[in-house]
Design a protein around this nucleic acid. Structure first.
Length: 200
DNA sequence: TAGTTGCG
DNA sequence: TTGC
């Protein structure tokens, strides 16, 4: 495991060994079985290219009216609980007693990407955001806490964990592209990103 | 291809 | 503009 720092964002390369990656993917599949992936609309422009669902007391959703946390999946069911294998990652990386209330699951298929954005729908920005990469490589881009200006990129690979806290909590970030088929963790290819957040 | 700008 |  190697810890890198990019503009205050902590990047833990190789945090999860292959066995734990497989365990987390199995847990994600359980969540998806109960709360199926959907393709969210955005308030402006086009639908998102990732498919998503959530686990936890709150799920993050987007539609034509905006971005928000919701108590239910679009189908009306409550989100499944966050699996222990995922909570354990939060515990290890943050060392905090408080646990996340949302695990957003973003599923990147071929050509999927995520524009530069801030995570700012939460009530308290003193809690960090932790994200976990599984499957295909993704080119992660980091800007600053304001829009515009220079950015820096780093390839995230399966098992990497990223923590955005402190001054970097509201930093702009996104995923420009993935290397579809670069990992064999997911038999049909693709990238899964888990984002863990305290919401309230 | 990488990176920044600005549209509606 | 979590898109283009």
């Amino acid at each position: 495991m190697t810890r890198l720092d990019l503009r205050g964002v902590a990047i833990f390369k190789g945090w999860l060994d292959p066995g734990r990656q497989a365990d987390v993917v199995a847990a994600v599949r359980g969540v998806v079985a109960a709360a199926p992936l959907f393709s969210p609309d955005t308030p402006y422009g086009r639908p998102m290219t990732v498919r998503m669902t959530s686990a936890g007391a709150f799920g993050w959703i987007s539609d034509r009216t905006g971005y928000r946390y919701a108590l239910q999946h679009p189908s009306g069911v409550r989100w499944p609980p966050i699996p222990d294998a995922i909570l354990r990652i939060w515990d290890e990386v943050t060392g905090l007693a408080r646990r996340p209330e949302c695990c957003l699951i973003n599923w990147y298929g071929e050509g999927a990407r995520m524009g530069l954005h801030q995570d700012r729908d939460e009530a308290d920005f003193t809690w960090p955001v932790v994200s976990v990469s599984l499957g295909d490589d993704g080119l992660f881009r980091i800007g600053s806490t304001t829009r515009g200006g220079r950015t820096e990129s780093i390839w995230l690979t399966s098992g990497d964990v990223v923590a955005m806290g402190g001054d970097a909590r509201l930093i702009y970030h996104g995923v420009d592209r993935i290397r579809f088929g670069s990992s064999r963790l997911l038999p049909r290819g693709g990238r899964i990103n888990l984002t863990l957040r305290v919401v309230t």
